[in-house]
Design a protein around this nucleic acid. Sequence first.
DNA 1: ACCGTTATCGCAAACAGCCGCAATAGCGGA
DNA 2: TCCGCTATTGCGGCTGTTTGCGATAACGGT
Lengths: 140, 140
Amino acid sequence: MNIDQTVRASGKRMTVQRRLVLEALERARHHTTAEEIAARIRRQLPQIDPSTVYRNLEALEGLGYVTHTHFEDRITRWHLTGARRHGHLVCRQCGAETQVPMSLLEPLARRLRAEHGFQADLAHSAVVGICRTCASVSSA
Amino acid sequence: MNIDQTVRASGKRMTVQRRLVLEALERARHHTTAEEIAARIRRQLPQIDPSTVYRNLEALEGLGYVTHTHFEDRITRWHLTGARRHGHLVCRQCGAETQVPMSLLEPLARRLRAEHGFQADLAHSAVVGICRTCASVSSA
DNA sequence: ACCGTTATCGCAAACAGCCGCAATAGCGGA
DNA sequence: TCCGCTATTGCGGCTGTTTGCGATAACGGT
């Protein structure tokens, strides 16, 4: 079942705007912001409204096609679910961003589940801290 | 060295507003929002501006007196550094909030440090997921 | 106690993101 | 193919937070 069909099967509709959001996400590949997506779409459909972009990202997230992650800068980043899941380390000093395999975060997720019955989504929020480079600079 | 002295030693000034922000944090004890702090201060100093509250929270955070934690998506919570550190689990469905001891998060912090040289601050962002109650309801 | 420097203030405007509304346009069925 | 239902749109406005500004007031020095 392709996206068009899935969207309709869920009682939703495949609009031009929705398709453009999807295309923008595909082209941007990595994590991107709502504003970047809006900007790209605006080239083809100038009257696109930011709220439309947000609502479509939410809708596509509900269908499992899209995910968002909170970084440190108050801006939400979106990406297609296709890419393999991973965690994020963000340096609060220099802003550098590192991806880490989910396997690293798994043990914590398992413990939270076992001890608290909590199904953690550890890819949802970036882990904030100080990266290796900044740590060595400040201690030097 | 008390707060007043520390503030001045760092080239900053101890204003009425700053002192009121500190008092509001002390009275609220637990995690509180910028708006709650502003509301409390407004009783004594009606013309206090939200931006003043934010800037003071930042300044006090820079001096190590205050910390903030990002909860589910939009709202930031502030608290005095004094309280013992702990992690947060937030249910994305019902919003329920659970505190967990840092010891639970320590193993991950250690691994991130050992394998990536990354000094994680795992108390800074709440862990988002589905709580026990919501999980059992939706699976029922 | 008085000055001069400048951190901090209150204000207004911008910011990302969200929501309710009336108008529009997908979609399934006849 | 046309029709009706209703999901979705663009708009205006709101929340929570940040920023630039000119005016004010802390504080160290005299």
